[in-house]
Each structure stands twice: as C-alpha cells, then as structure tokens.
Design a protein around this nucleic acid. Structure first.
Length: 649
RNA sequence: GCCUCUUUAGCUCAGCUGGUAGAGCAACUGAUUUGUAAUCAGUAGGUCAUUGGUUCGAUCCCGAUAAGAGGCUCCA
C-alpha cells in the first residue's frame, strides 16, 4: 500500500501501482469526469501514471492553471491531427499551450492557410474530438524515433530529436496522429467540446529571423461550448477598449500619413490629459528633490559616440542630419541621458551636490521597424518622463528605493494594480550585447535585487532583458488584448559615468565617479496613456478628465446664466464647455455621456430663477440641485478623492 | 524588416462571376426654444488608398507602392 496526500492535507491509502485516475474515482464520480491531469510531488503527469510510492497528489481540472494548459497542450495535438487530415504532407515544429489557448507551428509547403479555412479546421477538430481518442504515451528509443519521423519526412521533428537524450523520449498518439512529446496529456480528446481557430500568423523557425518562416496557427478550446461563447464576448469587449479605437473616438490623438507613421499627433483633449499627468508627476518630483532641466531635440553625433549609443544603435537609428555648410553631423536624440551627463559636467561637482536628480519630459526619436509600430504603445517619437540621478556608490540603494516608492505612488494613484515588477538582467550567453565590466554589472544587478527585495516587491527575473549599459527594474502591464508592455523603468548604470568621465570631489578631497540611476515612472507618456485609456475604458478619474463638466442650458433663454456659471467654475480651475447648440436637453446629455464627460450641469428656468444648477453624473443620472458654491465643493472633493499626496500615507 | 490579411464619404458599413457608387451617423443651412441618453426638413460631401497592367470598359481581375491589422523578430 502507498499513501497519497491530497492538497487539503488528508491522506488516503491505495494499492501500489494505482493511478491518479483511481484516486479521483475513489473520491467522486464527478471529479473523475472532470479531472484532466495530476500533479504528483510537484510534477504534472498523465492520469494513468502508476503511483509506485507514497506521494503528494493534486488532481488538476479546468480550474487549475496547469489543468488548463494540459488541456490546451492536448488541443494543440488535436489541431495537428486535424491539420494532417486536411493538409496531407504538412510538417510540424512545436505546439505549446500559451496564456489564452495554444498554437502549432507548421510548414504547409506551397499552400497557405487563411481565415476562410478556420471553420473547416474547427469542424474537423470537433469531429475528431467526438471520437474520444485516448492520448497514448509511447516510450521510444532515439533510433526508433529518428526512423519514424525520418520516414514521415518531418524534418523539424528530426531537428527537435537531435537535441534530446536517448532514454527519455516519448511519443504521444491519439487517433491517427503521433507526435514527439514529453506530455502530459488529458485522458482523451472527448473532453474538448468547443474549438476556435483564432488566427494564422507567421513565425520564424526557432525564433531566428535568418531562418525560414513557419505558419503559426493559434487556437483556443474549451470543455464547454458556453465557455467559448463567453470568451469571445470578452474579447469583443476588450477590443472596444483598445486605445487605438477609443483614442480616436474620444479625439485624443490621430496619425497622418503625411506626417509619418509612428508619429502621433495629440489633439486638444489628449493634450489636456497628458498635461494633467505631467503636472501630477512634476508635483511629486518636486517633493522628491528633482530639479527640472530642458535639453534640445538633437545632439551632435560625437555625443552618442561617447555614450556608446552610436556603436550599438547607429545603423538602426534615424541617420544623422548634416549642417549645410560645415557638414557637422547631428542625431535626433534617442535618449536624454547623454545630454544630462553634459549638464552634470557643466560645473565641478562636490559630494555635497549628490544625489543630483535631473528631470525632464524629454521627447526622443527612435527608428522602430515598421512592423513594430502599434498605436501609441510603440511609436517613433515619444516623450519620456525621464530623470537621471547622479549619486555616490553608497547612495545607490537608498535612491533606488525612493524611486520604487515614486513609481508605486504613480501606479497606485492611477489605479494600476495589475502590474508585474520585472528584474531585467543580462542574458547568460551573448555577452557582446553589453558594455562594461562584469564587476560593475554584478554590483548593479545586486543593488537592484536588494532594493526590490527590501521594498517587498514581488519580482520576476528575466535574463537578456537588460539595457546594454545596465540592468533594469521594469514595471510591466498588459493591454486590453493581453499584450505585455513595459511602463515604468529604473536602471542602475556604471557605464555612462565612465564614458563621460563624470566625477565629483569627495569629503576626502579626492575625485570619485558617481553612479547614474535612469528612471521613468510612466515610461513614455504615449504608452502610459494608451494603457490608461484601456484600463479605464476612457472613464478617467475626475482630476484627469480633459473635460470635467458640460454645462447644458435647456434652451437659449438660459444661455447667459449658463455662461455665468461656467465662468465662475473656470475661476476654480474646473474645465469643460457650454453646449450652445439649439438641441433638446436629451440630445445634449447623450452627447456628453458618449464623450464621457463626468459631470453635467443642467440649467433651465428653475435653476436660473433659484441661482442653482442641476447636477447629473455620467452613468448614474440626476443628483439633484446645487448652488454653484456647493457644486464647487463637490467637484473639489471629487478631484481629491483619487490622488493621494506623495510622501504621505 | 519578415509572413498573412485589410483599405469604398469625417465615422460605421452596403455594393449580386467586371458596365465609373449607396445608407445611417457626423458636417453645413433652415425651422424648432426644448427638463435628464439621439427634434424635423433640406444641402453638400467620394479620380472606390496610390500607381501600373489586362479588358471595348476596372471599386471589382493581376502587379507594385503606401498606410493599417495580427503574429514573428527587434525595443537604448
């Protein structure tokens, strides 16, 4: 007998060689019907894996992340089976589960798969699913596996096999499809009740752009048809929040082919929102000892040769512009740091000046590959809420922690609670990507890890995500469609101070080299606002709304009073507009609601006579009548509701 | 940059195996003076993204270019 410990701590006894499915059956028939895979001592396995010793066991269902990914992994095999039937001769690379479904990379030869074919693939998948074919695990020797896929002509599988160790190789077979796979899988295809092919895109073989392109087919499946419906509805809703759509509807920004792709044009309402955000951060930065600076949009090429940016990105930048007479070369600035280094050098610095925190909303221009451009999240001209902190070695951690506080304050104030803090380090292999000594890198990396740790941040470590001059702490968020973007970033840099030969005189009267911390809590105004639009679906907090109020006179007779009210509100820095059109009040309200104006002030005969206004809140309706003073108090409370003051709890 | 796809009025979309285009909303004009999510009528607006080709004839078929979409690669 062996003992099986379940997640709730309870222990049960079973015959040696019993399987997780036996355990499920012994608990309840319902569980046995829904269980997809099992986690045995931390490892996910097939349900028919015999248990040879006492173990800790968790039965995985659709409600477990690992259950879901096993389900989707099996679904990838099912899709492959369908593809092999529909497109004889198709060759397979890999087909893993992903966050929202799965994909399979395939080579269809001359044929291409378009969205017209999706229905056919879905139908075939469901037809095969109904056969309830068992996923059979088949251990195989490397030689036999090589023969099998060699005979089949599946060159990609042979490539995959070449990296595998003999003795650990398994195939999985369901129906007429056999795949090289380590598993685990769900018991049979019958669990898959709904299937949707999401899109067919291209992907480089092994992710290397020098390689051939394969077709990547994304799909998603569910154990219930209803869940697919719900998922598709959710996706539709997400699309409606897309900042590219909402931003255009709300008249925040636009693009012009004539100005150039990736170069956003900010419209009045978008510019207003952006200005609010800038003022908000400037205020917090002032309290944190930052000093504003302003630098030009171009800099001499020599500046970037010194910084190392020329060597690293020169070819992938907008090319230098030349002066007509002398032929001097200037670059559009891709970063603000070199300029800030020169500000540091503008006079001799003492240890008493440190930390020196130079801040600038600096607009930078980067040549991004045309295929990378994406709404406001990836553009060729954008404004960083940049600052560089020049400090002594022993100040790095304290300064770094202060910046973490500032970033978290910004995120909290704007309701960004769904972010992940990512420690971006060097890749373990390709070291030629980076400049500087290992010693400096080690120092910088451990400073970041330590500071994040002391702040109690939950972090994920990503190798290969560092900047070329130093490691970063990046704050990542997802957009409406689940794509990950970097917003806030904090970086420790020992390299630029070296390259620019920055120094300060210490208390010991000796020259020392400062350390630089690069940081941007928003990251870029463009990307931050894009995510803010998607997070709020355009329903901004009162203090940020480009138009806070709409004054809506019921007829022209009350225009004068409406104008008076509006003027006195403007004196309290409340912004908005008076709707002068000769429309009915219902229409004016509707238009204000659609434009997502948070508060509407309705003014008619009664209000004009009493010296009051009728207040209506977007999405909620009538709030009753207020005097102008009462309303001002109400509005001020609304403004203060959402922003904590930096430095106070 | 690479692969696939898309592009008809300011916006959302119609347009039957090729015979030079329509609707709703928005805009403009007029009437209306309105009480909590769309007043009525009229007017104007398009070399069907651009550009080559096939054809008696192209919004429609083919090619190129541009912009956009979804991925991949890249992201100081």
């Amino acid at each position: 007998m062996i003992s099986v410990t379940l997640p709730d701590g309870s222990k049960r006894e079973y015959q040696k060689g019993s399987t997780p499915m036996d355990v499920a059956l012994s608990i309840s028939e319902g569980l046995a019907r829904n269980v997809l895979a099992a986690k045995v001592d931390g490892q996910v396995v097939d349900l028919n894996t015999p248990l040879e010793k006492s173990v800790e066991l968790q039965l995985l269902t659709w409600n477990d992340t690992e259950g879901k990914s096993t389900f989707w992994h099996s679904s990838a095999h099912l899709m492959a089976e369908a593809l092999e039937v529909l497109y004889p001769g198709v060759k397979f690379w890999v087909g893993p589960p992903v966050e929202n479904g799965f994909y399979y990379d395939i080579d269809t030869g001359e044929k291409s798969i378009s969205s017209d074919d999706f229905k056919m693939i879905e139908d075939k998948m469901l037809e095969l699913a109904r056969q309830k074919n068992e996923f059979k695990r088949i251990p195989i020797t490397k030689a036999d596996a090589l023969k099998y896929f060699g005979d089949k002509g599946d060159e990609y599988k042979l490539d995959l096999l070449s990296g595998l160790e003999d003795g650990n190789i398994t195939l999985y077979q369901q129906g007429n499809f056999t795949d090289l796979c380590r598993g685990p899988h769900i018991p049979n295809t019958g669990f898959i009740k709904a299937a949707k092919i999401m899109n067919a895109a291209a992907a480089y073989f092994k992710g290397d752009q020098n390689n051939k392109m394969l077709t990547r087919i994304y799909g998603v499946t569910f154990p219930k048809a209803k869940e697919l419906e719900e998922y598709l509805t959710l996706l539709e809703e997400a699309k409606r929040r897309d900042h590219r759509k909402l931003g255009a509807e709300l008249e925040f920004f636009t693009f012009s082919e004539k100005v150039g792709k990736g170069l956003p044009l900010w419209l009045p309402k978008g510019a207003m929102l952006r200005e609010r955000l800038e003022n908000f951060l400037k205020k917090a930065q002032l309290r944190s000892g930052y000093l504003p600076v302003v630098t030009p949009h171009i800099g001499s090429k020599a500046l970037y040769v010194t910084s190392g940016h020329w060597e690293k990105y020169g070819e992938d930048s907008f090319q230098p512009i030349k002066t007509p007479e002398e032929g001097e070369e200037f670059m559009l600035k891709p970063m603000n740091c070199p300029h800030h280094c020169e500000i540091y050098k503008s006079k001799p610095r003492s240890y008493r000046d440190l930390p020196l925190r130079l801040a600038e909303f600096g607009t930078v221009y980067r040549y991004e590959q045309s295929g990378e451009l994406h709404g406001l999240t990836r553009v060729r001209g954008f404004t960083q809420d940049d600052a560089h902190i020049f400090c002594a070695n022993d100040q790095v951690e304290a300064e770094f922690m202060k910046v973490i506080d500032l970033v978290l304050y910004v995120f909290k104030s704007l309701g960004f609670d769904d972010y992940s803090a990512q420690v971006s380090l060097r890749s373990k292999e390709k070291s030629s990507k980076y400049i500087g000594s290992d010693e400096d890198w080690d120092k910088a990396e451990s400073a970041i890890i330590k500071a994040a740790d002391e702040k109690g941040l939950k972090t994920v470590v990503e190798y290969g995500e560092a900047a070329f001059y130093g490691p970063k702490l990046d704050f990542m968020v997802k957009d409406a469609l689940g794509r990950k973007w970097q917003l806030g970033t904090i970086q420790v840099d020992y390299q630029l101070p070296n390259r620019f030969e920055l120094e300060y005189t210490g208390a010991d009267n000796q020259k020392h080299r400062p350390v630089m911390i690069h940081r941007a809590p928003f990251g870029s105004m463009e990307r931050f606002i894009a995510i803010l639009i998607e997070n709020t679906a355009g329903n901004f907090p009162f203090w940020l709304s480009p138009e806070q109020i709409a004054v809506l006179p019921i007829s022209e007779k009350y225009e004068d009073y409406a104008n008076d009210v509006f003027l006195s509100l403007q004196e309290h820095d409340i912004r908005g507009y008076v709707d002068h059109r000769s429309e009915k009040i219902g229409r004016k309200i509707r238009d204000a609601e659609v434009a997502k104006v948070p508060l509407m002030l309705i003014i008619g005969e009664k209000e004009a006579a009493e010296g009051k206004i009728s207040l209506r809140k977007k999405g909620e309706g009538d709030l009753g009548s207020f005097t102008v003073d009462e309303f001002v108090a109400f509005a001020k409370a609304e403004i203060n509701k959402n922003i904590p003051t930096f430095g106070k709890n």
